[in-house]
Amino acid sequence: MTDLARSGSRTSDPADRPKIVRLHPFGLDGARTGPISLATALLLLAAWFLATHFRLVPPLFLPTPQEVATQFLAVVEDGYAGATLWEHLSASLFRIFSAAVIAASLGIPLGLAMGLNRWAKGVFDTPIEFYWPLPPLAYLPLMIIWLGIGEVSKIVLLTLAMFAPVCLSAQAGVRSLPIERVNAALSLGAGRWQLFRTIVLPSALPEILTGLRIGIGVGWSTLVAAELIAATRGIGFMIMSASHFLATDVVFVGIGIIAAFAFAFSYGMRLLEAWLVPWKGKS
């Protein structure tokens, strides 16, 4: 009787909660890292602030946070190098988006075809494997010679950089399709197109989205290279131009803007993934 009363009180009284245990985890196992990341960011900011405050680094190399903030407001207000911040930003976003749309609309179907068809794989495997490890800066001169210094060469350069991860991930998506799932669909009477539409495509979708996320990341990191080509607009151009005048604060502003947008895109892709493939990792 007393035991029963005690066990009853043990679950109801929070102060007397039993010790909750679980199996020892390995690796991260879903542990929360957000607060640590936030603390790291604050620490880095503090280090920057202190380093500039005590002039540990010459201001030409490392501007103070205040200078960067002031310069950011100045660029927002007056623009930079004869164009407003919005014109720089929209020029860069237009290039990245055009390239992403082209890379996805070519890379996804081609990757799927290469995962499904011997001829597609055989024909396209060599050129893609050959070009994709090349750094975009290496073929940049060719782009200029072949395509001139207009928008085309910039968008083609970005497209080339984004295409490979998208195409390769679509292939990997097809490869990850279990044969039992295909057989199940066939024995339910699926035709070729139905098999592709209802089984192959959704099965490959998680991998395709991962490829797009990587592709857009690669796009941002190639942007500065693309805007080296005689551009007068663009965040990458802004950074390059500022560096010629040793305007490190403007360089910092540009880097900050690219980082913020790349982060926002990556986060948006994650949301898209959670919405489109909620089953990922659950089966």
Partner: peptide, 10 residues
């Protein structure tokens, strides 16, 4: 009916 379940997770 397969040994492994082959339901579509989506």
């Amino acid at each position: 009916v397969f040994q492994k379940d082959t339901l579509l997770p989506w």
